[in-house]
Nucleic acid binder design. Sequence first.
DNA 1: CGCAATATTGACACTCTTCAAACTTAGTGG
DNA 2: CCACTAAGTTTGAAGAGTGTCAATATTGCG
Lengths: 249, 249
Amino acid sequence: MTGIPDFIPLHELRSGCPACSLRELCLPLGLARDEMAQLDEVIRQRIPVKRGEALFRAGQPFHSLYAVRTGFFKTTLLAEDGREQVTGFHMAGELLGLDALGGTQHACTAIALEDCEVCELPFQQLDSLSREIPSLTRHFYKLMSREIVRDQGLMLLLGNMRAEERLAAFLLNMSQRLEARGFSAKGFHLRMTREEIGSYLGLKLETVSRTFSRFQADGLIKVQGKQIDLLDLNAIRSLLGACAPTESH
Amino acid sequence: MTGIPDFIPLHELRSGCPACSLRELCLPLGLARDEMAQLDEVIRQRIPVKRGEALFRAGQPFHSLYAVRTGFFKTTLLAEDGREQVTGFHMAGELLGLDALGGTQHACTAIALEDCEVCELPFQQLDSLSREIPSLTRHFYKLMSREIVRDQGLMLLLGNMRAEERLAAFLLNMSQRLEARGFSAKGFHLRMTREEIGSYLGLKLETVSRTFSRFQADGLIKVQGKQIDLLDLNAIRSLLGACAPTESH
DNA sequence: CGCAATATTGACACTCTTCAAACTTAGTGG
DNA sequence: CCACTAAGTTTGAAGAGTGTCAATATTGCG
């Protein structure tokens, strides 16, 4: 039981990876019972991260990947002149730290946007395990290539789309990912500020706010601070001009 | 000698990976002699790709990675509405196809911008080999995470920088990569059109052209069609306002 | 060498940003 | 529990930076 902090209630100790509903999002499918048990040994579960805290920061040595169990993170990149850009928002079942997998230090910073729980996957031990469980390596290849494709989709958005299209793509993406996790696809509470949305989409916060207001005036959505309700999904979709992929991550 | 086309002159057969000057860019360092020999067996070398031809296209099944041996490629992403974005330019020693590594089909299209030669690395066989050569897996992790970091640097550029900064970052990046390959850092021939540069940087071709002209008027560069000479590297660097990472890839 | 593709340049339109002020929400301490 | 403060949001007006359209010049491939 090494590495499992003792403030976790006893009954939680039994709910490791094999029982985790998010398993198929962060571990390969089709693992044998004993393989799963091996992984379960290695993974440190349910580490709490408070709102505003960093899970890791750019430049810190890389030791582990982290799977989001509950809560919501942003990852940011910091330019030398202080400009910071949000490179992603991450929710339950997603893996953080892939951009450091091959290297020695983290490239981005991961900040909790609300109180979160993560599971830690120490890379050294995963690496050893992957000799016994070849599908593990394959799984990380898949996750990393998915991350590359995701980033390229965002590049397409940043390079080609106008404010309305960007916001529409953002809302649909959130909707879809929340739905995939069993939440409502039509109403949700944004965890990030307008400024963080803007940074992610390459827009200023005022532009984000204005565009939300316009969407509301047009009857597409209802905005109440961070609470968003999508009133006309099809109309929002049509804003994309059949453009960028909404899918993925 | 399977897989090696017979139009390759005999003396080339001896110049496989162990002799290739680009080796350290596409294969892990510190391989033993016999490991290198094994890889050499698997890699199909010096496949010619003519200017304008696709090395692979988005949607095609993924079988192999490709190392650029000579020449110059662009990779593009195609949105459903026909909009296409250039996601990267790739020169000798760089690996293409990483975005498909974990999946079954290519996500982007790779087009040769001049007559090229590539080496093919069949993934199946690499995968088998990596059981005997663990550093191979690690190497691909590294390459993929580098690709993620590169893409995120571009996201930062697309999200935050203005036309002048984008062009300056582009020129410095080209200069640096060419220099690393033994070419001049100050004068080079662009292989891509203004439109392709613009697509990559999220600008219209007219803006690229205008910005080049302004740089020239300011004495920063000399432009003669696709021939670019960097006259004042420091001044170009200072345009970046100490922003985005120019490094990488 | 000739033609199509590419590049340059200008004038104008438009989107987004900037600056500023007012307003709302959430969190803190009396 | 309410007052207070800081952070976040909304909205307006003006301006900068790119995009668009169009005409002309140039390049480079066949």
